[in-house]
Design a protein around this nucleic acid. Structure first.
Length: 257
DNA sequence: ATGTCGGAATTATTCCGA
């Protein structure tokens, strides 16, 4: 079973690019973030024609998450308690025996911006709500764009970025709280020493300069971690394809036995 | 190089968010 997470940065603008990627990688399940499209304008048929069921929690213009699945999906949750004003950022579905949640964590904008404490509160809500989404002994996945760099190795600036937004102790402590509920960062578990990024700023030639961050994760319960065959950050699809512009995030792919 | 994108508001340009 091939699972992926991908911040597509605008599903309508990315549609042809996404189709190229689906054709090339043939994932079974994809968690998408920043679809940026109202639910009534979502191109469901484009994906159904490719054999994917679609589940979304979205809104006009900004944010929005969705799940593509070749297996039947049952939506069991959208959003976090008390966090609706932060936008459409979480959806949970059940696929056969797997609980699959994808999230788009608030960016926070800047340390002195009102959105930063909102980001921390959202992460607190995520961690406290997670046990009601999935039990520790269950097959469950929590994937998405977390907008947090967990460790210095996950930033192109290394320790020099400590304390900047995405790299603060407050954000890192909350990511750690999430993994301490029993979730495993599947990439880091498989590759303890590798520096691999999942996001590069569009500006300043950051991609070609190697100036990236690893902020997109597939977290899994131990029952899922035991099934991992491979974890790949699909860097090729951060590049232009057939003249089509890429998202600023690369997909992260996990192959399970 | 504060250097690029996507989308909204509003009508080809400016603003916002990332």
């Amino acid at each position: 079973m091939r699972i992926a997470t991908w911040n597509v940065n605008g599903l309508r603008a990315r549609l042809d690019f996404i189709k190229l990627w689906l054709d090339a990688r043939a994932p079974d399940v994809v968690g998408m973030q920043e679809v940026k499209v109202a639910e009534e304008e979502f191109p469901f048929d484009e994906f159904r024609e490719l054999g994917y069921e679609v589940a979304i929690h979205s809104q006009k213009g900004w944010n929005g998450v969705g799940i593509l699945s070749k297996h039947p999906v049952r939506v069991v949750g959208k959003g976090l308690p008390g966090q609706d004003e932060m936008g459409a950022r979480l959806i949970t579905a059940e696929l056969e025996d797997l609980s699959f949640t994808t999230v788009y964590v608030p960016n926070g904008k800047a340390l002195d911006h009102d959105d930063f404490p909102g980001k921390l509160a959202w992460l607190d809500s995520m961690a406290s709500h997670w046990p009601s989404i999935a039990a520790p002994d269950q097959q469950a996945i929590l994937c998405g764009d977390f907008n947090v760099v967990p460790e210095p190795i996950d930033s192109w600036r290394g320790e020099k970025a400590d304390g900047r937004i995405f790299h603060t102790t407050e954000e890192r402590r909350r990511m750690a709280a999430l993994t301490q509920t029993g979730l495993v960062d599947l990439f880091r578990d498989r590759y303890p020493e590798e520096q691999r990024f999942s996001w590069w700023d569009y500006r300043g030639g950051a991609f070609h300069r190697g100036q990236g961050l690893r902020i997109d994760f597939v977290l899994g319960t131990p029952a899922v971690a035991a099934r991992v065959r491979e974890v790949t950050i699909d860097r090729d699809f951060r590049k232009k394809q057939d003249g089509l512009t890429a998202s600023d995030h690369a997909p992260v792919i996990v192959d399970l036995d």
